[in-house]
């Protein structure tokens, strides 16, 4: 009998002082486990489907910088074996040639880089080559951005995006003209 009396005196409420701590623990758990993975990569725009009866416009041989990646992942630059890290310099030379060297392009707007692969080329080799070509363009854009008084091309592109009517003049001047060659018929 005295036992029951004792229980009646106890307070009925659940202590809520630790509630915040429990909630905090849960919060921290979700904060830690949440991975906001931003997808990064190399962006490309595929050429639209060609009509059968329309022949593509002729392009002068000198305006195209041909890069071939073969089955073993080796690079042929204008039919000469080359290392992957030499591509960047060659692309810059090719694009900014302005008709000076007859082997390279006539002008910036006409310069074209063509990447061709075999069917058995490993994807990694292709991405490395494509990356180098893009880095060449990024380097050229960086130079242009510095001429315009920006720290880097990244700063410039942020500045361009900050207002909707601004046009990216650098990318207009030096267009990244990278062509993924049509695969050979099997």
């Amino acid at each position: 009998m005295p036992k029951i009396r004792k229980r009646e005196r106890e307070e009925g409420a659940i202590p809520t002082a630790s509630m915040a701590d429990i909630a905090f623990l849960l919060l921290i758990f979700f904060l830690v486990t949440t991975t906001i993975d931003v997808d990064t990569g190399i962006g490309m725009v595929l050429p639209p489907k060609l009509d059968e009866d329309v022949t593509p416009p002729p392009i002068k041989e000198r305006n195209v910088l041909k890069i071939l990646v073969n089955e073993e992942g080796f690079v042929l630059l204008e039919d000469k074996p080359s290392a992957v890290n030499l591509i960047r310099g060659e692309v810059i030379k090719h694009v900014l040639n302005e008709g000076a060297d007859p082997l390279y392009s006539e002008s910036i707007s006409r310069a074209l880089v063509s990447i061709k692969t075999a069917r058995k080329t490993p994807y990694d080799a292709y991405v490395q080559v494509l990356d180098e070509v893009w880095m060449a363009y990024f380097d050229m854009w960086d130079v242009e951005a510095r001429k315009a008084g920006f720290g880097s091309y990244k700063d410039y592109s942020i500045w361009v995006k900050s207002e909707p009517d601004r046009v990216n003049e650098i990318r207009k001047k030096i267009k990244a003209a990278i062509s993924i060659a049509e695969p050979d018929a099997r």
């Binding site: 997808d39 990064t40 990569g41 190399i42 725009v45 595929l46 050429p47 489907k49 991405v127 494509l130």
Partner: peptide, 14 residues
């Protein structure tokens, strides 16, 4: 993808 007309691609890389 060209047949479908989805021309914007991204080669996902690290």
């Amino acid at each position: 993808l060209r047949e479908a007309g989805t021309l914007r691609v991204n080669y996902s890389t690290k």
